[in-house]
Design a protein around this nucleic acid. Sequence first.
DNA 1: CGCTGGCACTCCATAATGGCGAGTGCCAGC
DNA 2: GCTGGCACTCGCCATTATGGAGTGCCAGCG
Lengths: 348, 348
Amino acid sequence: MSANKPDISERALQLLKALTERYIREGQPVGSRTLSRESGLNFSPATIRNVMADLEDLGLIRSPHTSAGRIPTVQGYRMFVDTLLTVKPLDEFTVDRMRTELDTDHDSKSLVTTASSLLSGITHLAGIVTLPRREHASLKRVEFLPLSEHRVLAVLVISDREVQNRILNVDRPYTASELQQASNYLNGQFAGRNLEEVRRSLIRDMKSDRADMDRMMRTAVEMADSALNAAEEGDDFVMAGETNLMEFEELCNPATLRQLFEGFNRKRDILHLLDQCVNGAGMQIFIGEESGYQMLDECSVVTAPYSVDGRVVGVLGVIGPTRMAYERIIPIVDATARIMGAALNPRE
Amino acid sequence: MSANKPDISERALQLLKALTERYIREGQPVGSRTLSRESGLNFSPATIRNVMADLEDLGLIRSPHTSAGRIPTVQGYRMFVDTLLTVKPLDEFTVDRMRTELDTDHDSKSLVTTASSLLSGITHLAGIVTLPRREHASLKRVEFLPLSEHRVLAVLVISDREVQNRILNVDRPYTASELQQASNYLNGQFAGRNLEEVRRSLIRDMKSDRADMDRMMRTAVEMADSALNAAEEGDDFVMAGETNLMEFEELCNPATLRQLFEGFNRKRDILHLLDQCVNGAGMQIFIGEESGYQMLDECSVVTAPYSVDGRVVGVLGVIGPTRMAYERIIPIVDATARIMGAALNPRE
DNA sequence: CGCTGGCACTCCATAATGGCGAGTGCCAGC
DNA sequence: GCTGGCACTCGCCATTATGGAGTGCCAGCG
């Protein structure tokens, strides 16, 4: 909000940092005595108490009740994350492990699943990864196969690891050679161009009543259009390790758990949240209520977009309790996003 | 175990029935006074107490502690389900709803997903449906498309709603016409035969060193073999409505929930259990520990196989607390299995 | 002989109680 | 401006009391 940074002393920030770290580690409200021992600064508990009172006035920490220690508020975590955090560099071993797991021959669905499990496995939180957007992927080829009187199979070849099927309902039977002609025409026109471009061209073609379009071409265009528009596979993101969240005292009560898991199943809210991260610049962190979804009130979400050819195509991240080890989690999410992007890039 | 049916009086069975029904409805241990009011039989609480003592000796009911009412044991539920249960006929409205939802144009994966949601939606429990086995499905056609130097796409057409892709890694480039020849050969040989037969034939062909097999045929056979053997999609069953289980008092504690959900994610145990039901004759019910999996100690599982052409191809069912409304759940699972089978059968 | 009412007993649940222990706020003194 | 001291506040925990529900057993009745 306002630039209240000058109002707050260096010492107070040090204490906020120490307090937050301790609370993240132990999960118990932190008292002045503890902090006096652990802060590094050499002050008596009484002094610490004065500073803590200031921090409380600023809304950075609060006590769950009179005469318990203090815990960070959302604003406290925010300040901690934004200005006090010293991220741990990620050890090479883990990076290697991720790279090998993600770099082995995958279609994008299984890549996403693996990434999600990796994230949850390494962080012990819940991992989420959106499926990569396809609009900018290029279409290598289209093939049509007759299935039955009123059905045609469209095969969209996007890369040598990525193929999609669409079953089209058509109004009359088509012969194999008709379909062959259609796909030849389309491949000639569109092969190598990206899906979004193709879609736009198709719409243009369908609107224009060009004289030079024979019946076959028209058929081809219409088929391609319905093939491209056929709904993408339903799940827009993949989640793993939800059960990890049950390990945390603060989330582990029936009411919270239920709210959380029902939200996960609904998918809608999570999807909304993730969508916001596609556009945001780089890594994004939502702490507690910041996300704006009640189900995530006690959680933090750390996300990073991943890109192919410098273009953001998806988002991945983790969900955990607000009291998560940000300094460890952040580099993991960051690295995963980079490796994910690399794994999606065409080889050779 | 033993035929202790004769040892137990008609009256005792009536009481067991009334007690179980009441307990399923209310979730509280049932006392003699309540039962005397509700059993229908006109006996004083004292008499009821005597009978209850007998039932307890037989291991059919137990009291959670001295001076609480009684609740059914697993054996009690078993007897209830096997011999005392009066199933409620399913209302036509629900059946219609299921039929319309399942009968609309689906590939088998989405059919399974829908069935699972339906089950969980109607029962308010967790629904599970295995993917239908394919061995006996017939192969309509195979097509190969070159993708890149070392990759070939195999398209297996199983029906006009069911198509599968396999990406094959091959050791040398193949031309489109080579692949065309291969698929022509295979289609001539195998089209219309079922997958298991095809697989067996292929193995036979590969072993025999028949003189009349030219290089092309050999290639075709090898490709088809690897296409058929490529791992089926990972998930062998689809689950829905897990969160419904959080509604139940008796399951809704962190430890139990965690065990349960981790088990669901692991999939292995559930899969094992469901496999047993494929062979079992018709509907099967596992009550509490009967399933043999600790995670399900407090749950019951009601399953029914579903079939195509009189051949069992999958299993579906629900998981809920032991204290579930069997008389309502059983016909639902049963009906779903029948409708599922119908929906999978080829139309027209 | 089987059913019943009566009675003592057991045990859970709930609330009330009081003593820690941890931590605070404030103040006076250095 | 920092510190020690002190009174105070609360949550936590174990203890205790109370009420209610339900049982087991027994003696009596039809």
